[in-house]
């Protein structure tokens, strides 16, 4: 038995989460649905620390919209020891989970506003947690333009969802690949910056949200600024190395700011003056 002490270690201790299903979505990514002991109560844009005891732990974005289900959905790219091991796990297996962590998006900011969402590659996984509530309540949140880009057609995530959202009257979806790689493709070819100049936007009433690989942010922000968007209208969902998720391990620091705690979602004017924000 552990002696009782006056301090609560819970933030660093995982809880059990059972895999309900794990489905391959691309060559490198699998979609997971996990059963939880209690609802996460998360905000869009938050993340969890996912672990396999004995293997390791990593920050993974929550991909489903907020709700009170005792379930969570994640998209995991195999790129290292933990993520490869996770891909081997099957329905019924148990993983460890801590969180939710980070600030996430405040849905109130999006009320009565139009939103341009720019997702590069795996960036669509966290942004789906925002798209779901925005798409579900058109009267509350306004028009949504989703620009989703990836390397080749085979790398596209959530193809069914992208098509379903495109059917909604208040949602426009622009799907791009860098290169068709000789695969069948019914979207556009180019970078996610390409459609921005032609979008029909009522700029003063529009917000933009970005998530993607590190190289993407600067160019998308330049394209949005060229349309007259101010830093206060742009939200960035940033990635950093993270070990604790609670502002202690130091890995995620952007200058003096802890990405895990003050982010990973920032209104761009909050970080625009930090030299380490985008590079």
């Amino acid at each position: 038995m552990q002696p009782m002490t006056e301090f609560d270690p819970a933030p660093l201790i995982p809880r059990n989460a059972r895999i309900l299903d794990s489905r391959r979505v691309t060559a490198k990514e699998r979609h997971f649905r996990l059963a939880l002991e209690a609802p996460l109560g998360h905000r869009p844009g938050q993340f969890v620390m996912l672990s396999l005891p004995g293997v390791g732990e990593a920050p993974i974005s929550i991909s489903c919209g907020p709700g009170d289900e005792r379930e969570v959905e994640l998209v995991i790219r195999a790129c290292g020891s933990l993520t490869h091991a996770l891909h081997q796990r099957q329905a019924g297996d148990v993983v460890g989970l801590r969180g939710p962590f980070g600030n996430g998006f405040d849905l109130q900011d999006f009320e009565q506003r139009d939103t341009v969402i720019v997702a590069g590659g795996l960036g669509l996984a966290p942004l789906r947690s925002l798209i779901e509530p925005l798409a579900a309540r058109p009267r509350r949140y306004g028009h949504v333009t989703l620009i989703s880009g990836c390397r080749t057609p085979a790398d596209e995530l959530y193809r069914d969802k992208l098509r379903a959202w495109a059917q909604l009257p208040h949602v426009d979806v622009i799907r791009l690949v860098n290169d068709t790689a000789h695969q069948p493709w019914d979207g556009e070819v180019g970078l996610v910056t390409a459609p921005i100049p032609r979008l029909d936007l009522e700029i003063p009433n529009t917000l933009a949200v970005l998530c993607g690989p590190p190289v993407m942010y600067k160019f998308v922000i330049m394209a949005l600024a060229a349309r007259g968007m101010q830093n206060e209208q742009i939200y960035v969902d940033l990635e950093r190395r993270m070990r604790c998720g609670i502002g202690k391990c130091g890995h995620c620091q952007i200058n003096q700011v802890y990405c895990c705690r003050s982010g990973p979602v920032f209104r761009f004017d909050e970080v625009a003056t930090l030299p380490e924000a985008l590079t």
Binding site: S51, P53, G54, V55, G56, E57, R243, C244, K248, C249, G250, H251
Partner: peptide, 8 residues
């Protein structure tokens, strides 16, 4: 006081 994690 920065730290990394390890599993054994």
């Amino acid at each position: 006081y920065c730290f990394d994690m390890r599993d054994d």
